[in-house]
Design a binder for these strands. Sequence first.
DNA 1: ATGTAAGTACGAAAGATTTCGTTGACACTA
DNA 2: TAGTGTCAACGAAATCTTTCGTACTTACAT
Lengths: 138, 138
Amino acid sequence: MTKRGLHSRPTDAELEILNVLWARGASTVREVHDVLGARKEMLYTTVLKLMQIMTEKNLVERDESQRAHLYVARAARDVTQGQLLADLAERAFEGSAAKLVMRALSSKQASAEEMGEIRALLDAFERGEDAAGEGGTK
Amino acid sequence: MTKRGLHSRPTDAELEILNVLWARGASTVREVHDVLGARKEMLYTTVLKLMQIMTEKNLVERDESQRAHLYVARAARDVTQGQLLADLAERAFEGSAAKLVMRALSSKQASAEEMGEIRALLDAFERGEDAAGEGGTK
DNA sequence: ATGTAAGTACGAAAGATTTCGTTGACACTA
DNA sequence: TAGTGTCAACGAAATCTTTCGTACTTACAT
């Protein structure tokens, strides 16, 4: 095993699968494949193999009590998103999350509504409310 | 050549080199290697090879007029940062830059000063000033 | 001239990630 | 019980990325 845990992000393919698991909750390989298949061609066995590897890497947990195994993401979406952001901040923004945010605000325009949400979050922070209420996850 | 241009980000090693080029401006392989060498061990020829590949991929431009070639990043830092953010938003935030920003604000705490800057940027946007003034690049 | 230092070029190995094909197990049906 | 469909498990190929070693060139100082 390589240095899992520190400094490695899920690969692209792994992240696609995690997205499905986060959206659907516990799922079989077939279910994940069907969802992904709607967007890109990918053989069933490819998805299976990836999910087996993800199990080894502890990215997902597998329930083998049924014939069709059930997989669940081990880390919450929030947490992984935070890790990906920290990683990107580190690699491309001199470690500064603030720079990252400002670049995101400058280069992509969010809708007025979204701007409002962002401002509300900022307000909450400045009021010291540890606003862990999580923005978009609801 | 693969589908460069759409949907491919610089690799990790490439990004490290780009960071040096953005910070220093036109640089030789030796100069880049010396800067990187301060952080990680990496043979000179490894850096050279990477920069040759980056030239093929059009990530950098090479001036061969001197014996020690000079390399410059082809895309401005801003632009690449924007692409990396768009890519991450696509892969991990359902394509929503706003969700990305909110997650960044929730999970990493920026300093009060940074929060202020972010707010100012937000204000500028809401006033409709196409605030391209660039937040942190100055 | 000869040696030495600093370059470029490049093939090939080493790693990591992704894809594909085959096999064997198991369940359900006719 | 034979046949069909679905599943897990691999091994192995195909890519992509990164690292390393070697060869060749050029400048410059003995």
